[in-house]
Write a protein that binds this DNA or RNA. Sequence first.
DNA 1: AAACTGCTCAACCGCAGACTG
DNA 2: CCAGTCTGCGGTTGAGCAGTT
Length: 283
Amino acid sequence: MDKIQEHNIDEEIMDLRRGPWTVEEDFILINYIAHHGEGRWNSLARCSGLKRTGKSCRLRWLNYLRPDVRRGNITLEEQLLILQLHSHWGNRWSKIAEHLSGRTDNEIKNYWRTRVQKHAKRLKCDVNSKQFKDTLRYIWIPRLVERIQAAKIPNNSHNEAQQPVLGRGINELVPIQLTHNNNNNNNNASTGITLANSSVAASSENSIGTQVSPLSNLSDCCYDCIVNQISSNQDYYQVNQCDQLSYEDFQAMDQQNIQLWMDSTEDVFDNLCNIEDIWSLEQ
DNA sequence: AAACTGCTCAACCGCAGACTG
DNA sequence: CCAGTCTGCGGTTGAGCAGTT
């Protein structure tokens, strides 16, 4: 007997439900957790009377019913954060989600697959290819920063930060110095990302037992920080000394590569423009 | 109006690591 | 130390919806 058959028989014996959750089931789960707290999902599933697996209960709670789950469109700042964090951590969705208040790993994963991977497809390149990563770093991310800035400061036509940032990459953006407490040095040496406060560091790396609530206002913090840095023009485009190319290096190298790339794919540039349009329309 | 296509997202699955007795 | 159980993660699926032909 194979595993799938075994699994199905188990479910039949247990009379387990699958598929979408009903309002009644949601109600039972919320009530149970309100009285007994979350965790111990298998016993929760048994004791609550829900004919669901512990896994299913956990997923439903974490991704949907939890009161601090934030729904709705991913904001520009969140998009920026996702792109930046993904460039450092790859598909470590739960880790990325820790830094987006109220967003679940599932939601971010879905966002990445449906939006970002779609664009990679249109560019006819692999989402993990250097080509695509460069597009993210040197075109999309700076563009997002511009748009965040534009949204925040509508009438700043003379602001220095309006200078085009195309071609300047994430790795030059040392910033996102999201520090609440200056004494807390939460720099993550491996990623180069400066975390916002101590609770984030605790929850992201060392969480044991009770969960430290994720950064409550990281997006706003990120947003303000970016805008402030742009506005004051203070070393916003510092070159990351650690392991990245300098801007000059990139320029020298990339002008060639971008040209080669454009030459090799006749509609790449059009696609890039389309992507920008798509990004705009999505808002 | 019907058929088709593409997109979104909730939910499931398998696996690995942590935990427990 | 070991075996069984639980938990959490990342990948995948498919129902439902919207837009297009």
